[in-house]
Amino acid sequence: MKQIWIITKRELNSFFDSLMAYIMIITFLGFSGFFTWIYGADVFFIKQASLQAFFGIAYWTLFFFIPAITMRLFAEENRAGTIELLLTRPVNDWQVILGKFLATLMLIIISLILTLPYYFTVSSIGSVDHGAVWTGYLGLILISGAYISIGLFTSSISKNQIVAYLLALLIGIFFQIIFEMLAGGMTGFSSEVLSYLSVSNHFESISRGVIDSRDLIFFLSIMFLGLILTEANLLRRRYV
């Protein structure tokens, strides 16, 4: 546990030292603020005291931003060779992976905390479904976890950050939208399976305020699978 925290701390510091964190936070707040309050189907347009507009836009901004944060995590260590030094210290692969996972998740959570003023503002305008807001945030965190683990996996494959980024987007887009589109064109069992694999279906039900174990299991298993594959990649390197 201590080792994980040491790695998390370093990665977080590195986010903030390299401006990555500030860029992430500013752009995230900028995008989500713009579309929540000023433009499109914003709060004033739909005339409802709800954060649905924010959740809708955050759903997409996270999708594009998370791979940009995770792409460096292993690709850079592979390129510079620092992974070798890291893995010959008294830490195991899982501590390294979880340390990096938690650092990214904490950066996302920090960004999300900074959007809490939206919630306070909306709740002062009208009566808000408080439960739906909190589950909406929980949903965003779960989505982030899933995309972070996919991003870690693609980062562990390559020495090239761009490759890691694009590959993460490619895998992510299936969960983000393609599975849902395919499910719409099919019927029966395959349609059911594909729509279960769609992140947006799960997020929708969570952000309405319903926490179903099916949704939780879905997100947790993507996270688990991504991290397992990352571990397999780290291990593979040592056999080659």
Partner: peptide, 12 residues
């Protein structure tokens, strides 16, 4: 251990 290429976290 000091590896051959002496890898370090350059940004630290």
């Amino acid at each position: 251990y000091l590896p051959e290429s002496n890898p370090l976290y350059e940004d630290m």
